[in-house]
Design a protein around this nucleic acid. Structure first.
Lengths: 197, 197
DNA sequence: GTCTATACCTTGATAGAC
DNA sequence: GTCTATCAAGGTATAGAC
């Protein structure tokens, strides 16, 4: 029964994850999740106390799956530069980014206007911290100071967020590719000027 | 009577503009606008047929006021570089950007997940086009080709959007200032390498 | 654990008095 | 033009049968 319970719980999380991404958190209702899963509305409260609890689980799920992605980037090669390149290229191949934007960025923009700014903000930063620290780790491995590595990590995330937002607003695949290439060039410049070989 | 009508209409637009910014469009109700203006809920329908009509008016208002800002930038100096600098520095001085992000960027992220993607997307791009074309005009005045000017305009907007999003997520004023300075340096490089004096 | 039925509230929107 | 009263629909959440 534990496995069966986990299965339905997982179904809810996955459906909510998708819906929060394509419709937004506030515009996603229990009825929507019910339609997507086939589970009756009232059933959700057996697994989650409130809608915000579902959001928490979705956030955890996104952190987890993105952690997996970063792990794959880490294990694929020992070269931090190659790792960062893989990280930069990943949204460029994702078709949905053009339509719905970055799952983290758009959700953060939405939750940043939440009533309980305390709780939401902590969750948002927790998600971005995963990316931030991983990127900073790669820059650090390239030989810059920890403080500088963190600065570069934030700048990289900002560039990627700006890229995905503008690309999704204009639904402009060419801009996405061009700007992605620009970020790669920027990485090259960083390594050329700040890293001793 | 016309003036009185316009006055109340203007009150609604201003209150809605503020609420859409700090609470988001979907989470702002007629009751919220009623509380903010002191006008009864039912009264809104004398001025606007639907909630989306209020959104339209708010968008127009934002375009209008930002157009004024750009006009001020344009009239303040004849130097396109100085104009672009003023444009870049403008969000750096705005305290609310740290808390609620860019009014255009966050609203676009929210409306990009709207049901009627057709109508919303057109409005969003209309808003960003104002900024895009103004920036492209400045780059063009610096002497680059129209196509290149448009590319640079988009890149500038993307950088600023990324900057404001990350800054608001981490509520990091230092990052905002630092990244703003980085964008200014980037502008310098562009002019140095692409513009013939 | 799963499902149905429903309570209770807020929403956007309408009708009509003044 | 302004306001009150109210509607129907949809929201989250709960109670309780199975």
């Amino acid at each position: 029964m534990a496995t069966k319970g986990i299965t339905n719980r997982q179904r809810i999380i996955e459906a909510a994850d998708r819906l929060f991404y394509v419709r937004g958190y506030n515009r996603t209702s229990f009825s929507d999740i019910s339609d997507a899963t086939g589970l009756p509305r009232g059933n959700f409260y057996y697994y989650f106390k409130t809608k915000e609890d579902i959001l928490d689980a979705v956030m955890d799920s996104r952190v987890e799956s993105f952690g997996q992605m970063l792990k794959a980037c880490t294990q694929a090669t020992d070269d931090p530069h190659a790792r960062l390149l893989a990280f930069v290229r990943q949204p460029l191949q994702n078709e949905q980014v053009l339509q719905y934007g970055c799952p983290f960025g758009t959700l953060s923009a939405e939750l940043g206007k939440s009533p309980s700014a305390e709780a939401s903000r902590a969750q948002i930063t927790a998600v971005f911290d995963v990316l931030r620290h991983w990127c900073a780790g790669q820059f650090g491995a390239l030989g810059v100071t920890p403080a500088r590595a963190d600065q570069l990590a934030l700048e990289l995330l900002a560039r990627m967020q700006g890229m995905t937002l503008i690309a999704s607003i204009y639904n402009d695949r060419e801009f996405l590719q061009r700007t992605g290439a620009g970020i790669e060039s920027w990485l090259d410049e960083i390594i050329k000027h700040e890293v001793q070989a």
